[in-house]
Computed example of a mutant assay.
Amino acid sequence: MTVTIYDVAREAGVSMATVSRVVNNNPNVKPQTRKKVFEAIERLGYRPNAVARGLASKKTTTVGVVIPDIANAIFAEVARGIEDIANMYHYNIILCNADKRKDKEIRVINTLLEKQVDGLLFMGGAVTEEHVQAFKTSNVPIVLCATTDEKSTIPSVDIDHEAAAFDAVNRLIQEGHTSIAMISGTLQDPANGYARYQGYKRAIEEAGLPYREEFVRVGNYKYESGIDAMQYFLDLNERPTAIFSATDEMAIGAIHCIQDAGLNVPEDVSVISVDNSRISSMVRPLLTTVAQPMYDIGAVSMRLLTKLMKKETVENAKVTLPHELITRRSVTGPKGK
């Protein structure tokens, strides 16, 4: 049988109101009485009914988090930042994996809202009109985490992805490269895809280099797509001397493809990317990459959401965190220069 607040009150010899005050940390309880109630709770194994408390207070102290790929170390780091701040402010997390599929993202958003979460953090790719419509049905705050909406109307925390890509490609240009190819994410993805592609293109054009369509291949963020794209570049009559990859995982696929072809990185082909995930310092040569502060993105997103949930004043609901170029060993000047 489930132990109820009535059972605890009878065991401790106090009223149910007194037990409720103890459970809810009300200071208006004598220390001796509080001790007696806690001892009764421990003996009986009583657990407060969070659902019932939520119905009474209209708060569940629960936040829903939609994550694109729970197996990706980048998103795991974001989730860690979210969890740490959530614990600090006494919120529980419901983490849902959406597999980077729009239909599943919409379904998960609606499921979390039906569970009466107090707020929602959305990590995903493109924020489409369907997403916006799902958000509009909510009466709780929503923060976009590591992504933004096209019109910048929804609170968000992210980096400037175009600037990050520009800095990465500009580093290759500074090393003397003029034949620079890109392994892009899907261009329907506003951040990892389109914005980073725009940064690549802007760096090429501002350096006075020709933009070549055959030097851009679209991948799916996975290691295998990095291999496929790199094989395509190696098969060109005029292959590039440097590769900019939209993500570390695709960059490592490219590095391994180059090495399998009997070539060396960076002597034959330089490789640079964006993310600075843990694997960027595990591959050989060590990968030069632009670091996203993924933990901070998660932590700042959760802090922004707590302010919105508590109806505190928020001066800036669109937060852009800084990125940093991490120089390692996968980039050098082209051969013969």
Rank of each mutant, 00 (worst) to 15 (best):
residue 77 E to D: 14
residue 281 S to T: 10
residue 321 L to G: 04
residue 36 K to W: 03
residue 266 P to W: 00
residue 12 A to P: 12
residue 174 Q to M: 12
residue 154 I to T: 13
residue 54 G to K: 14
residue 259 Q to I: 14
residue 189 D to P: 12
residue 105 E to A: 00
residue 317 A to C: 08
residue 260 D to A: 10
residue 131 H to G: 09
residue 109 I to W: 10
residue 246 A to W: 00
residue 69 D to R: 10
residue 64 G to M: 02
residue 141 P to D: 06
residue 212 R to A: 05
residue 144 L to C: 10
residue 66 V to L: 14
residue 111 T to V: 08
residue 19 V to Q: 07
residue 201 K to L: 11
residue 318 K to R: 12
residue 223 Y to N: 08
residue 287 L to E: 03
residue 184 S to Q: 03
residue 11 E to W: 01
residue 261 A to E: 01
residue 284 R to P: 00
residue 61 T to G: 00
residue 116 Q to A: 09
residue 308 L to C: 01
residue 7 D to N: 15
residue 258 I to H: 05
residue 219 G to W: 04
residue 270 S to A: 15
residue 21 R to M: 11
residue 195 A to L: 02
residue 183 I to P: 02
residue 179 S to E: 14
residue 310 K to F: 08
residue 4 T to Y: 11
residue 222 K to A: 08
residue 291 A to Q: 12
residue 57 S to G: 11
residue 281 S to E: 15
residue 114 E to D: 15
residue 196 R to A: 06
residue 210 P to M: 06
residue 206 E to D: 13
residue 42 E to C: 06
residue 127 V to T: 11
residue 214 E to F: 00
residue 134 A to L: 02
residue 285 P to S: 10
residue 216 V to F: 01
residue 326 I to M: 14
residue 87 N to V: 01
residue 140 V to N: 11
residue 299 A to E: 01
residue 186 T to G: 12
residue 214 E to A: 11
residue 5 I to D: 03
residue 292 Q to H: 13
residue 174 Q to S: 14
residue 244 F to Y: 09
residue 288 T to A: 11
residue 227 I to Y: 13
residue 77 E to S: 12
residue 117 V to Q: 02
residue 327 T to S: 05
residue 156 S to W: 02
residue 271 V to H: 05
residue 160 D to V: 05
residue 144 L to V: 02
residue 322 P to D: 04
residue 336 G to Y: 06
residue 306 T to R: 03
residue 63 V to K: 03
residue 99 D to G: 07
residue 268 D to T: 01
residue 107 R to D: 09
residue 165 A to Y: 00
residue 157 V to I: 06
residue 80 R to T: 02
residue 86 A to C: 10
residue 22 V to T: 10
residue 146 A to I: 00
residue 73 A to R: 01
residue 269 V to F: 02
residue 208 G to L: 04
residue 13 G to F: 03
residue 114 E to K: 12
residue 26 N to V: 04
residue 281 S to Q: 14
residue 178 T to Q: 15
residue 320 T to K: 07
residue 24 N to W: 06
residue 315 E to D: 11
residue 5 I to L: 15
residue 309 M to S: 02
residue 161 H to E: 13
residue 290 V to P: 08
residue 198 Q to E: 12
residue 29 V to D: 08
residue 276 N to H: 07
residue 162 E to W: 05
residue 219 G to Q: 08
residue 39 E to Y: 08
residue 132 V to K: 14
residue 153 T to C: 04
residue 290 V to Y: 03
